[in-house]
Simulated assay, not measured.
Amino acid sequence: MPDSAASPRRHPFDLDPRLGAALLPFGVGDPSDAHVDLDDDGLRVRFGFFSLATPVRNLAGAQLTGPFRAVKVLGARLSLADRGVTFGSATERGVCIRFHRPVPALDPFGALRHPGMTVTVTDPERLVAAVEHYAERTRLTTARRTEPTPQPGPVRRAGAVLRYPAGLALTATRYLRRLPHIDRAEAVGDASDLPPALPEELVDAHVKTVEEGSGPLLHRVFTVDVRDSGLDAAALMERVCADLDRLAPSEVVTFRKTRGRLGELVVGDEYVVLMPAPWNGPVRVVHRDATSFRFATLAGHLEAGQIEFSASDDDRGIGFRIETWSRPGDRAAALAFDVLRVGKEIQLHMWTHFCLRAGGLSGGRVPDGVRVRTRRASWPPRPVR
């Protein structure tokens, strides 16, 4: 998009020349430093040293606001009342934009998130109309979710928390014991490692796509060969889908269904993966057939992307496979996941455990252990050669 106020998708800020000196500390010196871009690719705001970006499906609505007192609107500001962010360059009128889920802007680490934003653009009516155009398109899909599932009571939830200390010790022991027996390799990735396209009818403001992550793209495949099970791939997946906790390292991880009927797994169902960590893992089922299902991550997840579980028949038994396409969910998660590698190793333990338990659930054996293949691509990934 050209850097021009004439572009129909660009909304320049109203830079009051009488107040220009007050904006210089925020990095705003001329019109190229402050503008709002809105198109099918998302909402993007630049205000000097600050920026904000979110997909259009996260736009909940907009309204005109103002006038303002200069002391409360000029510059980049945080509202202590509702944590909203203001990018202000004039005092007469502005646009208040609401988000379905809060987004980062002022905090460089992304820990502070804002449920709404006020901007003072030159043509606020045009920006309100543009935001409402996208918001109307996403309101229906965001509201159309499966019915919530009744949740466990406080006693059961407290019991799960109390078992975490012993569970962490057991998990660490298992991880160290298995690590030398895992066949793992890593290679450089490219655009071929992007996840499958998401069904449009299942993408709403709650979905956290790989584009919304932070840091590199990790494409990981965990596989085991199951022998002498007596089941075929479809029968094994029926058992897996009936109760995911039977395969998870449940001393520290629990799959809690939040939307959909218990005992089944269908497209549109939602779960949250509960862990003793600052992040839990809300996910939505976006694909299901006889031998596979796939989750997409939701807002609040440690990662942004998708994960697929599948089984296939061969002449020697069943191949069970977990495939992930993900980026750390935010900058803090990127530090824990990719730089310190803690999240990456937790993921390795969780899904290798899941693979081995799949073999046990089938009644068979896993003679060769777990193979883990990782392809790591910078973001955006380079084209396929």
Rank of each mutant, 00 (worst) to 15 (best):
M1T: 15
P2K: 14
A5M: 03
A6R: 13
S7W: 09
H11M: 09
H11T: 04
L23G: 07
P25H: 04
V28L: 08
G29V: 01
S32Y: 07
V36I: 09
D37C: 05
L38P: 00
D41S: 15
L43W: 04
F49I: 09
L52Y: 03
T54H: 05
V56P: 02
L59D: 04
Q63G: 10
Q63Y: 03
T65V: 15
P67G: 05
P67C: 06
F68C: 12
F68D: 08
R69G: 14
A70D: 12
V71Q: 13
V73I: 15
G75V: 08
A76F: 08
S79V: 05
F87I: 04
E92D: 13
E92T: 13
V95S: 05
C96E: 15
R98S: 15
F99A: 11
V103K: 06
V103M: 05
L106G: 08
L112R: 08
P115T: 14
T118C: 09
D123C: 02
E125C: 01
L127R: 08
A129S: 14
A130C: 06
Y134K: 02
Y134F: 11
T141V: 15
T141N: 01
T142P: 02
A143C: 04
R145E: 05
E147G: 08
P148T: 05
P150Q: 02
Q151Y: 01
R156A: 14
R157H: 07
A158N: 12
G159F: 05
G159L: 13
Y164M: 13
G167W: 10
G167I: 06
G167K: 09
A169M: 12
L176S: 05
L176A: 06
H181R: 13
V188Y: 11
P195M: 07
P199H: 00
P199K: 00
P199T: 00
V203Q: 05
H206F: 15
T209N: 02
P216Y: 04
L218I: 09
H219D: 11
V221D: 02
D228A: 08
L236F: 08
D243M: 10
L244D: 04
R256F: 00
G260K: 00
R261M: 11
V266S: 09
G268A: 00
D269M: 01
Y271E: 02
V273C: 12
W279H: 06
V286Y: 12
V286P: 07
H287R: 14
S292K: 06
F295I: 04
A296Y: 11
L298F: 04
L298R: 08
A299V: 14
E303D: 12
E308A: 11
F309G: 09
D315K: 09
G317L: 10
G319W: 00
G319R: 14
G319C: 11
R321I: 10
R321Y: 09
R321D: 12
W325Q: 03
R327W: 02
L335A: 11
D338Q: 06
L340Y: 10
R341N: 11
R341D: 10
E345P: 00
E345R: 14
L348F: 01
H349K: 07
W351Q: 03
L356W: 01
A358H: 03
G359D: 12
G360Y: 00
G360F: 01
V370S: 05
R371A: 13
R371Y: 01
R376K: 10
P383W: 07
